[in-house]
Amino acid sequence: MPESEGETVNRRKNLIAWVSLGVSLVALGLKYAAWAVSGSIALKSDALETVINVAAAIGGLWAIHLAERPADDNHTYGHYKAEYLSAIIESAMVLVTALLIAREAYEGFVHPQNVDAPWLGLVLNGVATAVNLAWGLTMLRIGRRIRSPALVAGGQHVLSDVWTGFGLVAGLALIPLTGWHWLDPTIAALIAVNVLRVGWEMLRQSVSGLMDEAPDSAILSRLNEVIAEKAVGALEAHDIRIREVGAITFIEFHLVVPGTMTVAVVHDICDRIEAGLRNALGRCVINIHVEPEHKAKDSGIVLAHATRCY
């Protein structure tokens, strides 16, 4: 029996989540070694952030597994929002990490230390940064394509680590050349600010998803076009509502039809609309409430000659 679209997406999510965990562990090992050989506060801060990457990858696996579960008596709309919960938890962990890194930076200013073997530490950290760059871009691209909040949040988190790594390597390379040891805690402080910024943005996006924020105007426009094109025989569509939960789009609206139209004909119209919406928007849960013509509203999509949209 061939795999459904939903099963294919879920399998891909699971694969990405497992690979993400493996990449995070490799990066953590490299960054821990970089800190161990150098004693740099900035490198320690970077390693500390990567610990959160590992925890986030584990949380992402849990969320994706839970989101795959079908609807049940307690969750009649399914478990799709588990990915948003995972993204919010990851955002909170990122914010806590920023505070811990800031504390390390403060200790570095108060009790400055020399950085030992900086070049070896920078090489190890640079390798970890390159690994994270390749994987972060992959996660972000795939997460956006399959509309996975957990993968998008994970990709954003990993890429924040990359930009931090680039700045860290460039800054610490100046220490043996200039003797400016204050650069070490300064870079750590900048890492904290960047991590705080990324964590806040991740939190904002995740809360928007949980609050059922409307999608962008392009999606709404496309939805209206499909209804106008496919509702041949109907008179109007109004009270259109749409929300996105991960890879699933929930759509509901009222469809006004002539009072003399048979149930069979109305059913065919609804089938055409549903097929058109799924073809245009992907996986959808659609609820169409059919009404007689005296229920028409001026604010709806008027289907003149069944195809034109005003």
Rank of each mutant, 00 (worst) to 15 (best):
L137K: 09
N114L: 12
L85F: 15
L255K: 03
S38E: 00
N74P: 02
L235V: 12
S91K: 03
V9E: 02
L196P: 07
Y32N: 01
I191V: 14
N287H: 09
I240D: 00
P70M: 07
K31H: 04
A237K: 02
K31D: 03
L25I: 15
N125W: 00
D73L: 12
E7T: 15
A170W: 10
V127E: 00
A57Q: 08
L255P: 07
I269D: 03
G167H: 05
E5W: 04
V285Q: 05
V54Y: 03
A128G: 07
Q205H: 11
G199Q: 00
P215D: 12
G179I: 09
A304K: 13
A47P: 09
M139P: 06
L133H: 03
R243N: 03
T249F: 03
L190H: 00
H267V: 14
E213S: 08
R204C: 04
R12K: 12
A57R: 10
G171N: 01
G78A: 08
P70R: 09
R144I: 02
G60C: 06
T129M: 13
P2F: 02
T138Y: 15
E293Y: 07
I146K: 02
V256S: 06
I286Y: 00
P258C: 09
G108Q: 08
I146G: 03
T178E: 08
E225P: 02
H305I: 04
A218E: 13
S217H: 05
I142E: 14
E229W: 11
T164V: 15
G121P: 14
S221Q: 15
R283S: 07
A27I: 15
A92D: 00
A296Y: 07
L159G: 04
S217Q: 11
E225R: 08
S86L: 05
S24L: 10
L303P: 01
R11V: 03
E213D: 05
A87F: 14
I41N: 04
R11P: 07
K31W: 04
V9W: 01
